[in-house]
């Protein structure tokens, strides 16, 4: 039987509730590493309290593993201190870049998937893992553009990075859908399924699920990865599809970053993570019967 754990991102709006008590629907909490650099802050105190109730995973957003100029060493040192302090179950970062010439952009910017980018990521991931003395996971980003000189498909790029560096993968199912939609793929669900089938599921240790927002830009519709909505039906469909492909134990996270609803809505979303996982497993068993 596949072992799945279901977690929630800890954010300032709900940190107090997670710090005060163990919610039965939540198996673990995930924190954005950069919010916990200062051990004396309220957020660090709340995370320490929450860690008494839940396993913690740390998810970085600012190390910029795709920077051609390399990582910011000071930033890496702060991440390392955070990892030592909280002893997280998993440590993850993104397949993206966010700094060049000393300027940081506080965003997950896309890279072209080329041999040069591959070498940059591989070197930085190895350095990151060597520094922490542990495996990290890399997450697929959401993208609003494509580069003309990309030569490798994103799923292959991730598989090869994992094989080259030994890093694990964090598969964000919502990002798969958002990117497929924004890149104008014909048949978005089919494109998303192909992506999930292409990913080496043995390397995936964590899933992210979230909501997105649709915007009209000129004549085109664009999906923005806002994490402020319930998960959309198409993303549930991709989630079920992926779980029907994988037997690996995994931590499944619900991300919600802004426009926070009542806590009951988050609990309902967590409950749906379990329900859809069960239905994927039932379908898998039926197909094997």
């Amino acid at each position: 039987m596949q072992h799945l754990q279901f977690g929630l991102g800890i954010r300032s709006q709900i940190a107090n509730s997670l710090a005060q008590q163990k919610h039965p629907a939540i198996d673990f909490v995930e924190a954005h590493t950069e919010n916990y650099f200062n051990p004396h802050s309220l957020s660090s105190h709340q995370l320490s309290q929450a860690a008494q109730h839940y396993p913690v995973t740390l998810h970085g957003v600012g190390l910029s593993l795709g920077s051609a100029q390399g990582m910011d060493k000071q930033h890496l040192r702060k991440v390392k201190l955070c990892v030592e302090r909280y002893q997280p179950a998993l440590v993850s970062e993104h397949l993206s870049w966010s700094q060049v010439d000393g300027q940081h952009f506080n965003d997950l910017l896309p890279v072209p998937y080329t041999e040069e980018s591959f070498k940059v990521f591989a070197d930085n991931i190895k350095q990151f893992q060597d520094s922490l003395q542990r495996q990290i996971l890399i997450e697929n980003p959401s993208a609003y553009l494509q580069y003309a000189d990309s030569q490798i498909e994103e799923a292959d790029f991730l598989n090869q990075l994992s094989a080259e560096t030994g890093c694990g993968l964090l598969l964000d199912i919502n990002n798969v859908f958002v990117s497929a939609f924004n890149q104008g793929s014909e048949g978005v669900i089919a494109a998303g399924k192909r992506y999930l089938e292409q990913i080496d599921s043995h390397r995936v240790k964590q899933l992210h699920m979230a909501g997105h927002t649709e915007k009209q830009i000129g004549d085109a519709r664009v999906l923005i990865d806002t994490h402020n909505q319930p998960v959309r039906d198409e993303v549930w469909a991709l989630y079920r599809h992926y779980l029907s492909l994988s037997q690996a134990p995994m931590m499944v996270l619900l991300e919600w970053d802004s426009d926070f609803p009542e806590f009951e809505v988050l609990e309902q979303q967590l409950s749906l993570l379990r329900t859809h996982a069960d239905s994927a497993k039932n379908a898998q068993e039926l197909s094997h019967a």
């Binding site: 965003d107 910017l109 609003y144 553009l145 494509q146 990309s150 830009i217 000129g218 664009v222």
Partner: peptide, 25 residues
């Protein structure tokens, strides 16, 4: 010049990233 065509123009796509950059800071 480095971007490939998608459902939005290069300028519209880049503007999404610029909006995120300015808004978050």
């Amino acid at each position: 010049e480095l971007l490939a065509p998608t459902s939005v123009s290069a300028q519209q796509a880049m503007q999404i990233y610029r909006n995120n950059y300015v808004a978050s800071l």
